[in-house]
């Protein structure tokens, strides 16, 4: 198991180097000159040239990239063009907000999705099944930012239950988390249903019933753990989607997380911060997927033996 984890982490390294390379060169295509952005409109060409030299922007791109990578290995993501402070500090101040939002959204979506999917599977081809699947199809099709606006309209502006934006109290997280988690809830429910439909047709389920167990015990003890694997995969993928989706939710609700910082830095042409946000989100995405793969071993003893 330990060897497998190490192998997976080592495999992440080339992928992350690739991602930094890719994002670095894409951002390098961006028009506009960094020194000009920092110094403002009125800077003289001499001042710009001097700052470029100081920042190493007069070097070839590849040298700039290697220098960036060297900094990255020491946890140094450079300084923000907008504020001059360290990008690492700035992102780390925002990251807990995004983690909290994603976590609450994930818990919300899983708590709702699992019962929905399981009930739909157990009552396959009844109205309960159709209703829950129509519900989740609508959920999959709904744009996150539109749902966010509708939640604000109903629960903040009309009913006044929750704040419209910000992150001041525990109430502030409810609407962003619901809007972020809703789409994922729908796809987790769909996957749970289809894998449970397959599981409850297995011979061992029939055996469990014929032992005289009641339906509840059969479903929860025998079918559920076995039908979980595809659901776990989807949950992992969905958490990655949420990191992307958090950009939208955070923008709508002015939630002070990394997603909002990303959009602000794009608008301010703050390349080091943009890079930092993307790299952080990519690493988080990769780690979530790694954890999901490792969870496979916890839920499925057959997978565990393969790790050796």
């Amino acid at each position: 198991m330990a060897r497998y984890i190490i192998k997976r982490i080592l495999y992440l390294i080339p992928v992350l180097i690739g991602v930094t390379l890719l994002v670095f060169f894409i951002m390098h295509l961006a028009p506009g000159n960094a020194a000009q952005i920092i110094l403002g409109e009125n800077a003289t060409p001499d001042q710009i040239a001097a700052l470029e030299k100081e920042m190493g922007l007069d070097q070839p791109v590849i040298v700039q990239y290697l220098r960036y990578l060297g900094g990255l290995l020491h946890g140094n993501l450079g300084n923000s063009y907008a504020t001059g402070t360290s990008v690492t500090t700035e992102i780390m101040a925002r990251f807990p907000y995004t983690v909290r939002l994603t976590f609450v959204a994930a818990v919300f979506s899983i708590i709702l999705a699992l019962p929905l999917g399981i009930i739909a599977a157990v009552r396959q081809n009844t109205w309960v099944d159709s209703a829950s699947m129509v519900f989740s199809l609508i959920g999959v099709s709904m744009p996150i930012f539109w749902l966010a606006l509708m939640l604000i309209l109903v629960f903040s502006l009309k009913l006044g239950w929750f704040p419209v934006y910000g992150a001041d109290s525990w109430k502030s997280i409810i609407l962003p988390a619901v809007s972020l988690g809703f789409m994922n809830m729908a796809s987790i429910a769909r996957t749970t249903r289809s894998s449970m439909v397959e599981t409850i047709r297995q011979d061992y389920i029939r055996t469990a019933y014929s032992k005289g167990l009641n339906e509840r015990e059969v479903i929860m003890k025998h079918a559920f753990p076995n039908g979980m694997l595809p659901t776990i995969t989807v949950i992992g993928l969905e958490i990655g989607q949420m990191l992307g989706g958090s950009v939208l939710t955070e923008t709508v609700f002015a939630w002070p997380g990394v997603g909002r910082l990303l959009i602000q830095s794009i608008n301010g042409r703050d390349t080091p911060t943009v890079m930092g946000c993307i790299i952080l989100m990519t690493i988080s995405f990769a780690l979530v997927n790694l954890i999901v793969d490792l969870l496979y071993g916890v839920f499925d003893p057959r997978v565990r033996t393969m790790y050796r």
């Binding site: 950009v247 993307i278 990769a286």
Partner: peptide, 18 residues
Amino acid sequence: DIFLAVPMMLMAIVIVAA
């Protein structure tokens, strides 16, 4: 693998931004 390591929405954002 490298492209898929970045969530699709983020990738699109970066490209448009650049």
